[in-house]
């Protein structure tokens, strides 16, 4: 079992969401926000669960990582109320509303394929052996918006090493849980469930790739992919698969869900690249979430600003063809 401390103790070196509590959250806490909530509730349904401020158990002994960005993170409300997670609906506020009862624990992960240690692992056995790190990463969605998110997680490489992939393993593929009774979005065939994603072994072993299990020093909220999800910050958000139930090592390149759904629009690599547009919209700029109505867009950076660390993974690869 993960040893968790009670809410009254917190490790002081992790990012406290209270620091980022904005004026409007305080106003809301005082109950003045009710009219606004009622009015806008009539425009479109709102993310009730996300509105009440940080929830979830505080995680013990999380250390800061030098790989974090210095940019200040988005609010808890934005990160947990504006999600693309089609397993819980295609609207941005669907996940926060329909993942409330998801109950991620107990959780098991099936590991298979080209490795020496396949099997069914408990969540605790997978995560508790590793030191938790806070990684504040930029997230760039393929829809041309972006956030900064204080994840808590473990390096994917250290997890992968425990399964001892053999020399045939060229790719790692991941699958999300398939449980339409608990994931109502899976009752409509928007995508070919379960969601599948994959990385090359080199990408998976890269120090920036993590398995996230927390947010803002707390256990990962259901709408953000609880209990464990991938985070690959130099790729578009859809690569960072949520609620991982299966990990497999393969010789052949897995076909990811969005690639299957629209191969001309979404590729296997999906590296953030301002020079290669989505067929229907430009990827040159992005809208930073939380900047307000008049902030404008900002330029998107190659590999989402992580070029220095990851560009060498792709030398010789035509990124226009391998989008």
């Amino acid at each position: 079992m993960l040893i968790r401390q009670k809410d009254d103790v917190r490790s002081s070196d992790i990012t406290a969401e209270a620091v980022y509590l904005s004026r409007r959250d305080l106003i809301k806490a005082a109950g003045i926000g009710v009219t606004g909530a009622v009015i806008s509730g009539s425009i479109g349904s709102r993310a009730i669960a996300a509105e009440n401020g940080p929830v979830g158990k505080i995680m013990a002994s999380v250390t800061k990582s030098p790989l974090s960005t210095a940019e200040s993170p988005n609010t808890w409300t934005d990160i947990t109320g504006y999600n693309n997670y089609y397993e819980f609906g295609t609207g941005k506020d669907d996940p926060s509303r329909f993942a409330v009862d998801f109950a991620p624990q107990p959780w098991r992960v099936k590991v298979s394929g080209e490795c020496n240690k396949p099997g069914n692992y408990n969540y605790e056995d997978l995560v508790s052996l590793h030191a938790l790190e806070e990684r504040i990463y930029r997230l760039r969605c393929v829809e041309a918006w972006s956030m900064v998110i204080p994840w808590v997680g473990i390096p994917l490489a250290s997890l992968v090493n425990r399964f001892e992939p053999n020399s045939n393993a060229r790719y790692v593929s991941f699958k999300t849980l398939h449980a339409p009774s608990r994931m109502p979005g899976q009752r409509r065939r928007i995508l070919d469930w379960p969601y599948v994603e994959g990385l090359t072994m080199a990408e998976a072993m890269h120090p920036l790739s993590i398995i996230a299990v927390g947010l803002y020093g707390r256990e990962l909220p259901n709408q953000n992919g609880a209990p464990m999800r991938l985070v690959v910050p130099w790729k578009y958000g859809f690569k960072s698969i949520k609620a991982i139930a299966e990990i497999s090592f393969t010789r052949k390149r897995p076909r990811s869900s969005w690639e299957q759904a629209a191969p001309s629009e979404y590729g296997f690599y999906a590296n953030v690249n301002p020079q290669v547009d989505h067929p229907r919209w430009s990827q040159a700029r992005e809208r930073p979430i939380g900047a307000g109505l008049f902030a404008g867009k900002k330029p998107t950076l190659m590999f989402n600003g992580y070029a220095e660390q990851v560009a060498s993974l792709y030398t010789g690869l035509d990124l226009r063809k391998n989008y």
Partner: peptide, 26 residues
Amino acid sequence: LILMLGAFNITDHGLGANPIEKLLHE
């Protein structure tokens, strides 16, 4: 009117995390 209240109200979050997208879509 309702959208404007959401956009300019101090109680905010009326238009959610991405207010421009919300306005555009509505």
